[in-house]
Design a protein around this nucleic acid. Structure first.
Lengths: 327, 327
DNA sequence: ATGCGGCATGGTATCGATACCATAAGCAAC
DNA sequence: GTTGCTTATGGTATCGATACCATGCCGCAT
């Protein structure tokens, strides 16, 4: 910055002003400084700026997993809005592990972010303490937590599970299984399964029929196919399966077709997530879609324009039950 | 840091050493300092550290798109290795637009990253200049560029297109179309289409049969279904389609099934990407899989352990043709 | 002529860490 | 006893920006 200032024959502070508040500098001076910036290829050092202004321009995001695409649209929406406001996204993943989350939060806080976005569901006591002490705005997304840490932008997984189950019951299904909603760390899946169980109970359809995901099972198509086989053995009268996520549903759907079981006549199949290949043009799968990109945008909005320093905002963006060919 | 130092009755510098090089501090002193750190809930400020050490501990990643999951496994592999080495990932997207890329590179350089990862393919002259001037190690991934900016960890999209086409020819297909490989900014898709055209020519199978993606068409299932319809009208003898990516292939496959066309007997369908729902348990789609996670890991390795400051490394990780039920 | 306010710009301290050099103590070797 | 080496610790300058206050100039009202 000093070199630029010298070349433009102004003080360093004026260079800073040209970059941050060009209106406050006389047009002629501004031109000279901008010319010097271009000629020297000067790129301001934001880490230094962060140190003195106490604002880093960085938002930390902690997602449960990067490995699959669930959060892609959210990250995309978030990143786009942030970029427009001169902020960047620092991304880490936790693999649904609260201990890893704790380490990740500590690391992110070391970067002095202007905000933190959490997709994880359970937080250790230390994490809560650190977050409170740091006074960094926090947004929890993709769920409605029982005990929010800060702001919330999400939807109710429980209500989604309930709605989908009610829909299947309404269309005449009686023996409905739920594939894969019971991993201890995956609270989103668990909530969906809870909503399912509650809807069964309300309709007087007896005990839930869960198929467990083993510790090593990812919620993917392979598990979906295997879980459907298992379910058909355990409940010969099976006439519908709800799958914890769309990839699982795709596996179940394809398995059903392979074994000659007609969908939806013989078996209804539905999932959660609004996966792209579930669309009409592809598998035409009945699913509950979540407003992924909108979550990202609203989150950015909250972090960039804090309305109120005391009251956390709780935004429920809901979900959309998409009735298609498989149920 | 001062507070911690005061509480532990040592100099600030000793606190710094306890954090960065604990072995160089006497065990008793170390204990005292660590106790003070815990009691005060002190989290070192890495932005300040970055300023004085000239190493930010941040790696900037520029992906063409976050919206779909193509790069998810790569980002995951990259992020995990980096985390293990105390580095973080700063993520931005370019939407395949060189102008946006330029802005993004400028922004990232402002954070003084220790390395930069680019998935984009075309770079403006200004981008090249900035990168060279900044002396930041750069890794281009997911391709083998004609004119590399720095290191490369990728594979040949052209060879992948060629191999898949050869395989189809070898299994008796004669009228092979290519769906969607011609967006000007998507050089990966274009290379695949080039490999396809070259293989056709080598086999004396006449002119390529491309179906264009319009400017507004995303490479998804909806486009795949529509493109297949168009292809069947234009080439009634069509006996195979190669799709620029797996989501497109899924659309084509489902469209074929819907219209009663038998796959693979009546039509072979194949894609690129190794998408999860293409697996045996699901759609059992013939595809060319790319080593996404491995690309991420190798990239991290190169950035974390620079072997040589002069010679850029060029790593071709290849691809894997997976023959499944659809071709 | 004086004083006041607004505009454009500059000077200096500061953010919170690390680099670099200095210092002090302990111990072995000559 | 001196030198030299190692180990443990501290002091001070510095990284590159911004915050805060100061300054000089101009025009205009009094």
């Amino acid at each position: 910055m000093g070199e630029v200032a010298a070349r433009a024959e102004v003080g360093k502070i004026t260079v800073s002003r040209v970059i941050r508040t060009p209106d406050k500098v006389a047009p002629e001076t501004r031109r000279r400084v901008q010319a010097a910036i271009r000629e020297l290829g000067y790129v301001p050092d934001r880490t230094a700026g962060a140190l003195s202004s106490m604002r880093s321009g960085v938002i930390g995001a902690l997602v449960s997993t990067l490995g699959d695409s669930v959060f892609a649209s959210t990250i995309d929406g978030l990143s786009q809005r942030l970029r427009g406001a001169g902020h960047e996204l620092l991304l880490t993943s936790t693999d649904y592990d609260p201990a890893l989350e704790e380490e990740a939060v500590r690391t992110l806080l070391g970067r002095r972010p202007d905000g933190l976005v959490l997709t994880s569901t359970a937080h250790t006591a230390d994490v809560r303490r650190m977050l409170a002490a740091s006074r960094v705005p926090v947004v929890e997304i993709w769920q409605m937590p029982d005990d929010p840490v800060g702001h919330v932008v999400g939807f109710s997984n429980r209500a989604a599970g309930h709605a989908l189950t009610e829909y299947l019951i309404g269309s005449g299904r009686r023996a409905i299984a739920f594939l894969g909603g019971d991993r201890p760390n995956d609270s989103r899946g668990r909530r969906r399964a809870e909503g399912y169980a509650a809807a069964l109970e309300a309709a007087g359809l007896g005990a839930p029929r869960p198929v467990s995901r083993g510790a090593g099972d990812l919620p993917n198509a392979e598990f979906g196919a295997r879980a459907l086989r298992e379910a058909r053995v355990r409940w010969p009268d099976l006439d519908a399966v709800i799958c914890v996520s769309d990839p699982v549903a795709v596996g179940a759907l394809c398995e059903a077709r392979r074994t000659g079981l007609s969908v939806p006549d013989g078996l209804a199949v539905a999932g959660f997530g609004g996966l792209e290949v579930a669309s009409e043009a592809a598998l035409d799968l009945t699913t509950v879609a979540f407003p992924g990109a909108e979550i990202g945008r609203r989150t950015a909005e909250i972090l960039l324009h804090p309305r109120d320093h005391t009251a956390p905002q709780i935004v429920d963006l809901g979900f959309r039950l998409i009735r298609r060919a498989t149920a």
